[in-house]
């Protein structure tokens, strides 16, 4: 399935494993609950492993494990559930997560600029969204008043005003 990654449309090979689905050797992501329950088995499964975070998951329970995951997925259960925006900034700016940080869910084109600003470098839209239309929106605004994951300086340090 195609996703946006690093500003390009690419085909994605990750599989999002349900909590009761057996892990194969293919790259797969698991929920925080499953990770906490089956850490040892999952590490042993052999394939690449990613972590899926919901807005309600307690960060202190998994941030120590972040360097084990080349991919972290933040779930957006609805377009108005904005918890993932804070989660992304914390992962990037506080916990120094350097791997692929992917937003997944029912957000829309008009949120892409914000998603990019808080540190996501991959976007997995709900099926049916024309990804070409999302690309220009990564830079929808040329002015950024706030510091965020994409720009550590607030506007008054970006320009001599």
């Amino acid at each position: 399935m195609p996703i946006i990654k690093n500003g390009k449309i690419v085909n994605d090979t990750w599989h999002h494993l349900a909590d009761d689905e057996p892990a194969s050797a293919a790259p797969c992501t698991v929920s925080v609950a499953r990770w906490l329950r089956e850490k040892e088995t999952l590490v042993a499964h052999g394939g690449a492993l990613g972590l899926r975070i919901g807005g309600g998951d307690r960060m202190e329970e998994f941030v120590g494990d972040l360097d084990q995951f080349p991919l972290v997925v933040v779930e957006f259960p609805s377009m108005v559930d904005g918890r993932g925006f804070s989660v992304a900034r914390l992962l990037r700016e506080r916990h120094g997560y350097q791997g692929e940080l992917r937003a997944r869910g029912t957000f829309i084109l008009d949120q892409v600029f914000y998603l990019w600003r808080v540190g996501f470098d991959a976007l997995e839209f709900a099926p049916g969204v024309a990804l070409e239309a999302a690309l220009p929106r990564l830079q929808e605004f040329s002015v950024r008043y706030q510091a965020a994951a994409d720009e550590p300086r607030p506007i008054y340090r970006q320009y001599a005003r």
Partner: peptide, 9 residues
Amino acid sequence: TLHPEFSYL
């Protein structure tokens, strides 16, 4: 204004 983190409170 257009705060990327706090627009979907």
